[in-house]
C-alpha cells in the first residue's frame, strides 16, 4: 500500500519537460497599451517627402549627366565655330584691300603660268618653243 502511495505521489508532481518551448510573449497590437514604443515604428511624413525629393533630384541629376554627354560635342562644335568666326574676323580686320588684291593677282598669275606650262608640248612649232624659251630667259633676268 505504501508503495502505491509513493507512486501516486510521484504521479501527482508536475514534471517539467526540458524541450518544451515557452509560449511567446504577446506582441502589443496596441502601441498605447503602456509599453515603451520604439522610435522607428512610425515613419514621419517629413521623412517621406525628403526621400521623394531625393529620388527626384537623383533622377534629375542622372538625366542631366546623360544630357551633358549629348551636349558636350555640340558645345565643342559651337566653340569651334566661334573660334573660326573670330579668326575670320581677325583676318578681315588685319587684311587690307590691297593685300587681297595682291593675293588675287598672284593667284591669277600662277593660274596663267600653269596654263602656259600645260600648253608647252612637242605639238608647238620650234619657233613658238624658241620664243617661249627666250621669254622665260627675259623673265628670269628681270626677276634677278
Amino acid at each position: 500500500m505504501a508503495t502505491i502511495d509513493k507512486i501516486s505521489a510521484i504521479l501527482n508532481t508536475k514534471i517539467e519537460i526540458p524541450f518544451k518551448v515557452k509560449a511567446r510573449e504577446s506582441i502589443h497590437t496596441n502601441p498605447f497599451a503602456g509599453s515603451i514604443l520604439p522610435a522607428d515604428i512610425f515613419e514621419g511624413t517629413q521623412l517621406k517627402s525628403q526621400n521623394k525629393a531625393k529620388m527626384i533630384m537623383s533622377a534629375i541629376a542622372g538625366s542631366f549627366s546623360k544630357f551633358s554627354k549629348i551636349v558636350e560635342p555640340v558645345a565643342a562644335f559651337c566653340n569651334k565655330v566661334k573660334e573660326n568666326v573670330s579668326s575670320a574676323w581677325n583676318y578681315a580686320k588685319t587684311t587690307t584691300l590691297s593685300d587681297l588684291g595682291n593675293s588675287v593677282v598672284e593667284k591669277i598669275s600662277t593660274i596663267r603660268k600653269n596654263a602656259e606650262m600645260n600648253k608647252i608640248s612637242e605639238k608647238m612649232s620650234v619657233s613658238e618653243l624658241e620664243t617661249a624659251w627666250l621669254n622665260e630667259l627675259k623673265t628670269m633676268e628681270a626677276a634677278a
Binding site: 606650262m117 608647252i120 608640248s121 612637242e122 620650234v126 618653243l129 617661249a132 624659251w133 622665260e136 628670269m140
Partner: peptide
C-alpha cells in the same frame, strides 16, 4: 627652271631639224 625643262623636252621630241639649232643656240 621648270618651263625651260619642258621646252627642252618638247624640242627633244620634235622631228623638225630646226629644233637642233634652237637647242644648240639657247
Amino acid at each position: 627652271n621648270k618651263k625651260i625643262s619642258q621646252i627642252i623636252d618638247a624640242l627633244t621630241m620634235h622631228q623638225d631639224n630646226d629644233s637642233i639649232r634652237v637647242l644648240e643656240t639657247l
